[in-house]
């Protein structure tokens, strides 16, 4: 398993938000964590990226404990994140934003350039706008930039908080296509979503409710059954 979470509890101050979450992700999988607003999905992301501490339970990445690793250390281990709200720096140019993706690893200028060309090959829309301000991009383009930037870090596991956030269905569809392509290149994905559209590309889905994960199903099965609707209504 690339990522194993066992009975993880955490929260803010004295307030527990995650009451024992367990899930695992194998190398090369695309996993969706689905759930309505306020169930602790973002807290789960913050836990994995090291922003909030683990209270009890266990989080292992590639077989080693992540307990004390800082966010930047985790990134350098290959556990990268596409933060909530995209995390594009508006005062930087597109190219500078892209380059930030390499902050967590030591790489020669030539390799960075090669990576950049490869990533820009996936997102040709960005190629012509490298010197433009990132704030001039549309929402969809910013999300592409966020994905492209994450790819520059050569992640092993990419955590994505709401890829579909605020985007038109058409654009979301295209982005998920890219996710599928990147998986074929060897990247593993853990995608937190509110919308079920992510199920079309993912292999397995966890449904979260009230700080716990309730269902673990193959995404295709979940799409075909009534279970999802039922779990949302409950």
């Amino acid at each position: 398993m690339l990522l194993e979470i066992e009975d993880a509890r955490t929260g803010y101050g004295r307030l527990e938000v995650l009451h024992g979450v367990s899930l695992n992700v194998a190398e090369g999988e695309i996993i969706t964590v689905l759930g309505p607003n306020g169930t602790g999905k973002t807290t789960l992301m913050r836990l994995l990226s090291g922003v909030v501490p683990l209270w009890s339970g266990r989080v292992r990445f590639d077989g080693s404990d992540l307990l004390k690793a800082t966010p930047e250390k985790r990134a350098s281990l290959g556990l990268c994140q596409l933060p909530e709200g995209r995390g594009i720096f508006q005062t930087l140019t597109v190219g500078e934003n892209l380059h930030l993706g390499t902050a967590s690893r030591r790489a020669s200028a030539a390799r960075v350039r090669a990576d950049r060309d490869r990533v820009l090959g996936v997102f040709p829309e960005l190629a012509g706008r490298l010197t433009a301000s990132a704030s001039s991009l549309s929402g969809g383009q910013q999300q592409m930039l966020a994905l492209a930037r994450a790819m520059m870090g050569r992640p092993r596991l990419l955590l994505i908080d709401e890829l579909s956030f605020g985007l038109a269905p058409r654009i979301v569809h295209d982005l998920f296509e890219v996710v599928r392509e990147l998986r074929d290149d060897g990247v593993t994905f853990l995608i937190v979503e509110q919308q079920a559209s992510a199920l079309r590309v993912s292999d397995r889905t966890y449904v979260m409710r009230n700080g716990r994960n309730e269902l673990d199903r193959a995404s295709a099965d979940l799409l075909a059954s009534d279970e999802l609707v039922a779990s949302y209504l409950r």
Binding site: E72, T91, H99, L100
Partner: peptide, 20 residues
Amino acid sequence: AQMRAVAENRETARLIGVNA
């Protein structure tokens, strides 16, 4: 550019691997 990113949003910069 990394410093400017930290200046704009420290937490996000750390999340994407910038060593603040």
